[in-house]
């Protein structure tokens, strides 16, 4: 363990050192190759030339890394999606035909759609409500920290926590799951929550909502504080009550922020994998697209083509939301 931490630290030190060396060294080399002293035409030309080259020199490593780890995989994945299970024979659109007709995929798509409907809406709504309420109380900051805390937990970690909440033991055993313990404590009958079709899907969604509410709350709380106090006072004088002020004066003024939060969570939801994988691995009708992608890549009989096809479909679903999100964010910053 300690050994690994040392290795990690050493890697960071070496990496940062090399990066510094590269930036400093390449800059030094550029200045050497294109001397910029003096006032003659050559020096002027060199200054301009060096100015044109330097950005590429500094951006180079980043562009290279992005290309290697982002652009190339996308292209390779698109390519793989047109090949067979082993990735060696071209099969045209066969994988896509399979995708459209496969019943497991259809079930996963349906679940993804459910997630899309529920999680962004619930997280944004709860985030908005907690933001508005915590702004009004003295211990609001403590409440905010508590609500935000799950953001710091990895999806798998959160799932493990919630496994203890949903845990089910045979009817004659002691229930160690929090939910079942409460129910049996109140004299009810324990339930196997994660196998309870179709409600188990919602049990999984609760985990992501639990995580994302903190994110929504922090962003929306900042937006709420940006609303000019006078517009709220004017509404008070105009006779609006608390709810009317909230829904007719405050929410419309932060609408673009709400949209950004909503779409950001939507993208997270489209990619949801860890929670499903760690909790049910897609059993009991809880499968989602990302889990199907993982399944075809690493479990059962590996099929690179099908896995790549699922990956491409997820990407195509995310892109329009991403574009809209970025455009929205850009328009908002233009306003300032």
């Amino acid at each position: 363990m300690i050994q690994q931490i040392y290795t990690g630290l050493a890697t960071i030190a070496v990496g940062v050192g090399l990066a510094l060396l590269y930036f400093y060294g390449s800059n030094w080399l550029l200045d050497r190759l294109l001397p910029q002293g003096g006032a003659d035409a050559r020096a002027t030309r060199n200054i301009r030339l060096a100015g044109a080259i330097r950005p590429w020199l500094f951006l180079g490593p980043a562009i290279f890394a992005l290309g290697l780890y982002l652009v190339y995989p996308v292209i390779a994945t698109i390519q793989l999606s047109f090949f067979d299970a082993a990735g060696s024979t071209y099969v045209g659109f066969a994988n896509y035909t399979w995708f459209v007709h496969d019943s497991n995929i259809r079930a996963a798509l349906l679940n993804n759609f459910l997630w899309l409907l529920v999680v962004p809406a619930a997280s944004t709504f709860l985030g908005l409500v907690t933001a508005a309420l915590t702004d009004r109380i003295a211990w609001g900051n403590i409440a905010k920290s508590l609500v935000f805390m799950p953001m710091a937990i990895s999806f798998v970690g959160a799932t493990v926590i919630w496994k203890f909440v949903y845990d089910y033991r045979g009817a004659d055993q002691t229930q160690i799951g929090l939910l079942n313990a409460i129910i049996t404590g109140l004299g009810g009958r324990p339930e196997a929550w994660i196998a309870w079709i179709p409600w188990n899907n919602f049990a999984l969604m609760v985990i992501l909502i639990w995580i994302q509410t903190g994110f929504a709350m922090v962003i929306l709380s900042a937006a709420l504080r940006g609303i000019p106090e006078e517009t709220i006072e004017a509404a008070v004088l105009d006779g609006a009550n608390g709810l009317q002020i909230f829904f007719r004066i405050m929410v419309p003024q932060i609408f673009s922020t709400i949209a950004v939060v909503w779409t950001t969570i939507t993208i997270t939801v489209l990619k949801v994998f860890d929670i499903v994988y760690a909790m049910t691995n897609g059993q009991w009708d809880t499968d989602v697209l990302a889990n199907q992608m993982y399944f075809w890549m690493f479990q059962g009989t590996p099929d690179f083509g099908r896995s790549a096809t699922v990956a491409i479909v997820i990407m195509i679903l995310v892109i329009p939301i991403m574009v809209w999100n970025i455009r929205n964010a850009r328009r908002e910053t233009e306003g300032h």
Binding site: E230, A234, L237, D238, Q244, P252
Partner: peptide, 25 residues
């Protein structure tokens, strides 16, 4: 009725809705 230094107009409403808001409420 109060007129504020910063105008305090509701930025998401048209001029008509700004003026009508109190009566709508």
């Amino acid at each position: 009725a109060m007129v504020f230094q910063s105008y305090a107009l509701y930025p998401h409403m048209t001029v008509r809705d700004n003026m009508a808001f109190a009566l709508q409420i």
